[in-house]
Simulated assay, not measured.
Amino acid sequence: MHTEDNWITTPVTAELVRGALDVERTEHGVLPHRLPARARAQCADPQLAMAEVQPSGVRLAFRTRATALELDALPTKRSYVGAPPRPDGVYDLLVDGRPAGQASILGGNTVTVDMSAGTTDHVPGPPGTLRFTGLPDGAKDVEIWLPHNEATELIALRTDAPVEPARDLGRRVWLHHGSSISHGSDAASPTRIWPALAAALGGVELINLGLAGSALLDPFTARALRDTPADLISVKIGINLVNTDLMRLRAFGPAVHGFLDAIRDGHPTTPLLVVSPVLCPMHEDTPGPTAPDLGGLGEGRLRFVAMGDPAERASGKLSLGVIRDELERIVAQRAAEDPHLHYLDGRDLYGEADAAELPLPDGLHPDAATHHHIGERFAELVFGDKGAFAEQGDA
């Protein structure tokens, strides 16, 4: 039986953090980042800053005999003016790889976004404490997956038995980059985002560089992928380029080549999978930009609409159909000299039949059930016997 008198406080250090590329010391504790400091210094976009500091796929991982633990943390939560309140972020506890509890921290900092006015308001708040008790006795591997949608400063870890860094289980490391869907969008919890589900089914360690609104072929992201040790790499490209109306077809092809060239500079023979966008009906033939439906916001619903015109494709504007065709062409061209490069049509993960059964609630992002579906499908197609990431060589 534990009491507060015999808690052991273990400093939260980079040794205990998995899935982050950088750990920043703050006045409260440590703040995991999913892009290195040099990359962050090269872009002042607030969307990127918000996305990379949300610890999707990041977890504390350690070995202990503890039957009870506490974690002090300071979350930063988001809310949108006129939209329904967002649920508090969820922390998932895994013991020896199996779900063993969930909890949330109330309070914390709050960032309120007014999409109509284009403004944000930051209100500081207090940290909170998670407590998990009744863990099985004996030595075990423990993971606390941080909320995929809340920036989280880690302040203190307390247990009723000593803690040591997690063992290396010899699993392959999968490094993935993508958009808000890969980041987690509206998944139920951090271990239920589709990349985490696919990683669990594939028996690999996940490093998730899914960056909401920020999968934009940025060179600093390519260099982060280049410099991160990994056994498997996938890049999901397309939807954010349409959302932001960032570039035309003339720029897109060379930018993809440059992005892949940078990755190959650090990983010349690593299995590398290029994934095109999943189905998004409003942007299949209609270019961006994407905008919130302000009328829907007035009714308390958050939906998105396509603002482009299909005719604009003739002048080089990008739709998802245009992007898929170009990605398939580029991968086929490069694969002639790169046998470790692979292509997956995103509609094999979520296509027309899936959309009929599991429509995108806001027109852009999948819900929890769809994350589960995409994760299972990816594991089957990519980690399966004939997939690009099959255990016995490349398909």
Rank of each mutant, 00 (worst) to 15 (best):
A39L: 10
P310C: 09
L273Y: 03
L246E: 09
K386I: 04
L344E: 03
V12I: 15
H33A: 09
L209H: 02
D265F: 01
R86F: 01
A255Y: 02
Y350D: 14
A314G: 10
E150A: 02
L211H: 00
K77M: 01
A44C: 09
T64S: 05
E376I: 07
G29S: 07
S116M: 08
L175E: 00
I207L: 15
P277F: 04
L358A: 12
A41C: 07
A68I: 13
A353P: 01
E352I: 14
L154M: 14
L31K: 15
E299L: 10
Y350A: 03
L327D: 07
G321T: 12
A68V: 06
R324Y: 03
Y350Q: 09
L360Y: 01
L69D: 06
R192Y: 03
A41K: 06
L225H: 03
D168G: 11
E391I: 14
R18L: 02
E376D: 09
T286S: 04
A166Y: 03
T269D: 10
F378V: 08
Q42D: 09
L232D: 00
G296A: 13
L344H: 05
G128E: 07
T112C: 03
P32K: 10
L302A: 10
S214K: 11
L94M: 12
L349S: 00
P359F: 10
M1R: 07
G125P: 00
R250F: 00
P127L: 12
H2N: 13
T228W: 09
L217H: 06
R303C: 05
G107W: 07
T76L: 15
D114E: 04
V81M: 08
F304E: 01
G387R: 05
L21V: 08
N240A: 12
D261Q: 11
L48E: 13
L318E: 10
P361W: 08
S185A: 15
P195I: 07
H342V: 00
N6Q: 15
D261W: 10
P310W: 09
P289Q: 13
A353M: 04
F132D: 04
Q54C: 00
A117M: 10
E357A: 11
L197D: 02
A335C: 06
T228L: 10
W7L: 14
L209C: 05
D245C: 03
G300Q: 06
V30T: 04
L260N: 01
V322K: 02
T10L: 09
A230Q: 09
L93Q: 02
A215D: 06
Y350H: 13
V382E: 04
L154C: 07
A336N: 11
G253Y: 03
F378R: 00
F304S: 08
N243M: 14
W7E: 02
A196V: 03
V17Q: 12
E391M: 08
G387Y: 02
L21H: 12
I144L: 14
A314S: 12
T3V: 04
T191I: 11
A196N: 06
G138M: 11
T26M: 10
G258M: 13
G213M: 15
C43D: 13
R131V: 08
T244A: 11
A262G: 05
T159H: 08
A311P: 06
M115W: 01
D121G: 07
H183C: 01
T119Q: 13
N6H: 13
A200P: 05
A61V: 04
V275G: 02
